[in-house]
Design a protein around this nucleic acid. Sequence first.
DNA 1: ATAAAAAATTAGATGCATCTAATAATATAT
DNA 2: ATATATTATTAGATGCATCTAATTTTTTAT
Lengths: 219, 219
Amino acid sequence: MAIHSHTKENYLKALYLMSLERENVSINELASRLNLKMPTVTSMMQKLAADKLIKYEKYRPIQLTEKGKKEAGLIIRKHRLTEMFLVQIMNFGWEEVHDIAEQIEHINSPEFFKKMDEMLGYPDKDPHGSPIPDRSGHIELTDHKSLCDYQVGKTVKISGLAQSHDEFLVFLNRKNIGLGTVMTIIGKEDYDGTMKIKLGKKELVLTQTVCEQLFAEPV
Amino acid sequence: MAIHSHTKENYLKALYLMSLERENVSINELASRLNLKMPTVTSMMQKLAADKLIKYEKYRPIQLTEKGKKEAGLIIRKHRLTEMFLVQIMNFGWEEVHDIAEQIEHINSPEFFKKMDEMLGYPDKDPHGSPIPDRSGHIELTDHKSLCDYQVGKTVKISGLAQSHDEFLVFLNRKNIGLGTVMTIIGKEDYDGTMKIKLGKKELVLTQTVCEQLFAEPV
DNA sequence: ATAAAAAATTAGATGCATCTAATAATATAT
DNA sequence: ATATATTATTAGATGCATCTAATTTTTTAT
Ligand SMILES: [Mn+2]
Ligand SMILES: [Mn+2]
Ligand SMILES: [Mn+2]
Ligand SMILES: [Mn+2]
């Protein structure tokens, strides 16, 4: 396992993550996600199919094989372990780690990631609340409930993010919202979905767009 | 700075390290060092010359420019900082870190290496006693005295290694010799250069080949 | 059902890093 | 000094990952 080019690994990872959202990944979507032109992607799909990493027939949507899912899972595992390591051990902020992990995920050294895993005490979530695949590449899919779905009066704990772009993370930092933050829903505006939240002693207003990106669990 | 391919970085590093030993690096030597054929190297030299990283004229030995030395120094810095991090922070043995550092040295993230440096307390030597270039890529060249050059009766401290191949490091582990190990020279065989050494309570015999690879300073 | 738009494929080119085979220059040994 | 061996360069090919332009297939809208 894991003797694929840096490039192929990035395709596999993108395919895996995209197929969690939109069942049926198209050449087009993959191309925009990876900032490549469609013919480039088509040509790579032919190679990945030859490697038995995807099931691919002309003009049909792309699907990872079990082998492909496993390989993808192992790369995502390295990415998320790395993010966790950067935050927990090296003291980076959760908004600083993605680009570094994007590179380190391609390091070929089981010992290196084994050691990270040990040092971190075998975590099962990354710093953004995303699940870390196990050593065989399998992801435990937890179904998340968005903050929006809770009613006024409920006290909940933030357990994950639907998206972790740096600007969103920085926004959350400013609002003092992080993984594990506990908050009470004190109001909800039906018209535009805005929520009023009590967080510690402070109250704040979150737009629907923000609430949709926050996963929460009752507490 | 540092927008060179992984490949070019490896050439630069090899050039730098080789030119510390044998003034005047040849295409041939570079080719064997990097496990490449000569035409491959010739062709890359033309590219590095175009980038002003080396001074190169057909059939003449190769020399790094100041720019080239700086870039090489920065890669070596990343390599050695990484080795130090792996040993000090992640608890790897000094014989396990080279191959991992060989990959991580290509990571493009000043913040990542800055953080390593901080966590390590700004070390100036790697786990094998080799100097870590400063942030501008400059190496402080310390001239080492080999263990061979000391006389019977002297007590010395191991301060570096002429070479750090894994098998040698494992050999030293077995003999309980590491960086900082203090030993007294209790005998020397002129015929074959073998040295008899007292290390703690134990005595051991080191062949000339081994002694030549050990750097030591008086203590 | 047909036309128009969007998506995907094929064909052909480019740049990078590598190779082998052929040739040329330099160094070495007689 | 000449022949031989070594080292280096050129020429030309290959594989990978990418591109643009042209073509084909599929989807959508009228
Ligand atoms: Mn990546
Ligand atoms: Mn993450
Ligand atoms: Mn390297
Ligand atoms: Mn070292």
